[in-house]
Design a protein around this nucleic acid. Structure first.
Length: 152
DNA sequence: GCCAACGTTGGC
DNA sequence: GCCAACGTTGGC
């Protein structure tokens, strides 16, 4: 069992968009960073991830998703009309992956970035590190326990 | 293979 | 809107 944090700009795709999907389930498209992609490829069915909003306030964790399907090719990389189109990616050897996620739990109100910063024990959490721009990052079991504990 | 230029991310 | 951080690109 592994834990993750998945970041999204809610202008592009936010927590309400996931909840509006059938079965509150969707694929996580558009990752175009190799390190983030490699983390995604390590995800297993049953892993849990925080759904984090960046850019638009309030910044923070809006809920938890469960990984329900492991990595498979991101269809948008082959779609010339998509902003995620990658002309160098070949179907025989797809460069980019998606996983499927499903809502597991909602945080209302969200756990804000400020709240995370004020919580003892999260000093080393990657999402709090300056300059950390990865859209997908691992969360330790200790950090997971502390954060989920904030909402009992 | 190096590294300067460039583009993007994302908190402030 | 600013700008630090940092990944990617491309000339050499």
């Amino acid at each position: 069992m592994q834990y993750w944090l998945m970041k999204s700009d809610p202008d592009t795709y936010g927590w309400p968009e996931l909840l509006a999907e059938k079965d509150e389930r969707d694929h996580w498209e558009g990752v175009r960073n190799y390190q983030a992609r490699n983390f995604m490829r390590r995800m297993k069915v049953g892993d849990l991830a925080f759904f984090y909003h960046s850019v638009i306030k309030p910044l923070g964790i809006f809920g938890v998703v469960k990984i329900v399907r492991e990595a498979y090719p991101d269809p948008t990389q082959f779609d010339p009309k998509s902003k995620y189109f990658d002309s160098r990616s070949k179907s025989a050897d797809p460069r980019w992956s998606v996983v499927d996620v499903q809502k597991h739990e909602s945080y209302d109100p969200p756990i804000t970035l400020d709240e995370l910063k004020q919580t003892p024990g999260l000093e080393d959490m990657l999402v709090l590190r300056k300059g950390q721009r990865l859209s997908i990052m691992p969360v330790t079991a200790d950090e997971w326990k502390i954060v989920t504990g904030l909402r009992g």
